[in-house]
Design a protein around this nucleic acid. Structure first.
Lengths: 155, 155
DNA sequence: GCTTGACCTCAACCATGCTTGAGGTTTTAC
DNA sequence: GTAAAACCTCAAGCATGGTTGAGGTCAAGC
């Protein structure tokens, strides 16, 4: 819809990026960008001819996606969090901060679980209790799996 | 090959378990047990007619599998670790302990990464640096992803 | 004006970790 | 001796997170 004139490959003043540029700058494959778009994680305008043009904030969005993924969130969870971002305007620092606060707590929780797991592991796999209901390892395992809202692991 | 006489459903003295029993006791679906077997994570003898019979240690093996999974290991990684277990005899407590020691270190490493990630997240998503190379978040992200020997997350 | 590279869509495929179902045998219980 | 429950195999399917390739269009440089 929004038509953009592109002056050169350098495109130093264009505020809209092509998919190739976004891929190069973010280190994400074009196919992944397409995929993120179909999953509603990022958006693009199209040129008259159908080529994608991204606003500058897409780079931040992508960065946030990768960070969240490495923290163990699924794309669906990330999309859900993104849904809380403002619709019309570009998200502000405060918007992102709100988002990250939630994830921080989630991470803290998962770190706690893993720590518990590790500590149990220290004394427990070698002991005889693993197959018994009393074993702390098996119980913390239960804690983990019963909390999962879908994905298996710490997802 | 090993033929086993089964006296009743109670089967209190049988040292070999049927797949249904293992499923019931471990809480793992039969289909998952089959799957674990095809992946080399557990083994079974067969009765003359082809039904599976498991040794008692299978329950511990399964417990270890679930724990390792909840720690974020893939079945392949678990299988690799299991490959180090003794071939002929039932693994001893010491064998399991050795195995768990490796995983414990791995867990510690991942806990460290997540902690770093969380701490960076605290100050960083809301700040302006996320799209820059200097951002600690993006760098710790790199640390994470460059270490991955396959799976994306903490896997 | 035409080649080249960047882009488009859509369908198929890969790995992981299973589940489901079809179609058939075995074991158990009455 | 027969019905039901438990088991078997093999193929297909599901979700996640993408990649790969075919077949075609668009844009830029010479």
């Amino acid at each position: 819809m929004v038509e953009v004139k592109q002056n050169s490959k350098a495109k130093s003043k264009a505020s809209e990026l092509s998919v190739g540029e976004v891929a190069r700058r973010s280190g994400i494959a074009i196919s992944a960008l397409h995929f993120y778009e179909t999953e509603g994680l990022i958006k693009s305008q199209r040129t008259k001819s159908g080529h994608r043009r991204y606003g500058r904030d897409v780079l931040r969005r992508i960065a946030v996606i990768r960070v969240a993924q490495s923290a163990g969130l699924s794309l669906q969870e990330i999309a859900r969090a993104f849904a809380a971002l403002p619709d019309g305007r570009t998200p502000s620092a405060r918007d992102w901060a709100k988002l990250s606060a939630g994830w921080r707590d989630l991470l803290s929780e998962r770190i706690l679980q893993m720590t518990r797991l590790r500590d149990d592991l220290t004394g427990c796999i070698g002991c005889g209790c693993l197959s018994l209901d009393q074993c702390p390892l098996r119980n913390s395992e239960d804690r983990l799996s019963s909390e999962g809202s879908g994905a298996r692991l710490l997802l």
